[in-house]
Nucleic acid binder design. Structure first.
Lengths: 128, 128
DNA sequence: CGCATCTACGACGTTACGTAGTAGATGCTA
DNA sequence: TAGCATCTACTACGTAACGTCGTAGATGCG
């Protein structure tokens, strides 16, 4: 517990753009599909997108399956899960968790505080 | 608001070690002091520590003041504040905040959930 | 069979960071 | 006040991650 894991580097810009495509899609996407989508915003080579997808795969941020000779990629976890993981990670690096949590709730908006209470209530309900 | 800030890269290993010295100290430390402390664990050159401190300064993670010809460094914010900031940042990158918060509280320990409730209660008390 | 398409893999530039050396400024001390 | 110790400023180099792309070879389809 409270292990000394290495901090997951935040995604690079292009990596983020690509992940967003995957998160937005209901199904697994081919490289070409991602390439087409990303192309509407950035002028990139097909292989660039392929490389990025490949690196995301190596980082276990995606899963992929064969579709003929092509790969279809999907996000390994929903965006919100990744966000939650990063929050966890940040909390793990705090010295005093209580203090960190206090400071955290101190800086969230009222709306977010409400969502947090809601989430905690749901948790209590579920776990007793 | 909800701007598209750049994700703060997590600290490098040595940067973290150095920040920990600063966080642990009640007052601002000279490079030499940090060097001495860090030296008990790692075999580094004095200038290496200086460089790291300098880079942390450029990233606004420290503040410094003159003391003769030397600089004295202190952490710009407590460790818990940085943790809270990283949590905020992670939350900002989530698509659906509600979902992200649900997933977050889902993975915290019972103890942490209790601390969170406590922090929220304190907040309510203070802000009504 | 041949063309279009896909992957595999290597490559190069940039930036962050770990690491350190040198030169020159500066302050204390005999 | 001359000189030594110490500090900063600046430069530099290696590595790793990432943005970016090209080439070569495998593969599926008409």
């Amino acid at each position: 517990m409270t292990s000394e894991e290495k901090a997951p580097r935040p995604l690079g810009d292009l990596e983020r753009v690509v992940m967003e495509q995957l998160w937005a899609a209901p199904d697994a996407l081919t490289v070409r599909r991602v390439y087409e989508q990303v192309s509407t915003t950035r002028d990139l080579a097909y292989t660039t997108v392929m490389t990025v997808l490949d690196r995301l795969q190596k980082k276990n941020l995606t899963e992929r399956e064969r579709d003929g000779k092509a790969w279809r990629y999907r996000a390994a976890a929903p965006r919100e899960e990744m966000a939650a993981d990063l929050m966890r990670d940040a909390l793990d690096r705090a010295g005093d968790r209580r203090e960190a949590l206090v400071r955290f709730v101190d800086q969230v908006s009222d709306e977010e505080a409400a969502l947090l209470r809601e989430a905690l209530a749901k948790l209590e309900e579920r776990e007793g």
